[in-house]
């Protein structure tokens, strides 16, 4: 199913053209609205999580959107999959984000965080997938390595973390003024969400309950197995 090896990794990296990377500062063209709330620089999440023994992967097909992002805080808005270990103190995260890296330009990109400790935290970024695509983001834990895939292509492989014990998928904002992914009539969709167990990566459709930090700002639904949808309560369309 998955191509493996560093050669493929680098090919994928090189396939990123300037045009792709400079899908930056995207216009608010898809599922974007300004919810007209004040700034508070507070993080909010809505998604699902679950623990599993012999956990070896998480995957979800996530809609690429360009939500309204004020740029008031640099950390922006994301929709990602994640594996955590060591009692949720270490993690691997993978998905799309729209943010201001280093207080620079607003950008949409694919991002990875691999957090071993505050002194050993790596973040990699790649050119974004087109708005409107339903992109497969997947993290597999195999032979002691965390492998990060987009649409079944291996982007990067990382080591140094123990086997995962928990999966999470969620949308996330860092300021009340910014749009939580999706709107009431056009949800952000995370579909075909599955976790994997064992060395043969047996797939299990995710059906765990949703969580929502702030239902006055974000909405979330779980209409069917493996499908989660989020939206901003302040955005009708």
């Amino acid at each position: 199913m998955h191509a493996a090896g560093r050669g493929v990794v680098t090919k994928v990296g090189l396939a990123m053209s300037m045009a792709t990377v400079f899908a930056l500062a995207q216009p608010n063209s898809t599922l974007a609205c300004a919810p007209r709330r004040s700034h508070d620089i507070v993080a909010r999440h809505a998604g699902t999580l679950g623990n599993a023994s012999s956990l070896t992967g998480i995957a979800s097909s996530i809609l690429e959107i360009s939500p309204y992002y004020s740029g008031n805080n640099p950390t922006g808005t994301v929709a990602t999959v994640m594996l955590t270990t060591n009692n949720v103190t270490q993690w691997a995260q993978w998905g799309w984000y729209k943010s201001k890296i280093d207080n620079g330009n607003i950008q949409r990109q694919i991002g990875m965080e691999f957090y071993i400790s505050a002194a050993d935290n790596t973040f990699l970024f790649f050119g974004a997938k087109p708005i409107g695509d339903q992109t497969d983001y997947q993290i597999w834990y195999t032979s002691g390595s965390y492998k990060f895939y987009v649409n079944d292509q291996l982007y990067v492989s990382e080591g140094g973390l123990a086997a995962p014990t928990q999966y999470q998928i969620f949308g996330e904002t860092h300021d009340k003024s910014d749009q939580f992914p999706g709107s009431q009539s056009a949800h952000e969709t995370l579909v075909s969400t599955a976790y994997f167990t064992g060395s043969t990566h047996i797939a299990h459709t995710v059906t765990s309950a949703t969580f929502n930090d702030d239902s006055t700002v974000s909405g979330i639904s779980h209409p069917s197995a493996g499908r989660y949808e989020t939206w901003d309560q302040g955005c009708a369309t």
């Binding site: 999580l49 640099p74 994640m82 949720v88 103190t89 280093d102 991002g111 965080e113 973040f123 996330e172």
Partner: peptide
């Protein structure tokens, strides 16, 4: 170059940093 702001802030239920 120096610096950079990581656009994630960790898992739900994890430490703040």
């Amino acid at each position: 170059v120096p610096g950079g702001t990581i656009p994630f802030d960790g898992p739900v239920g994890g430490p703040t940093f």
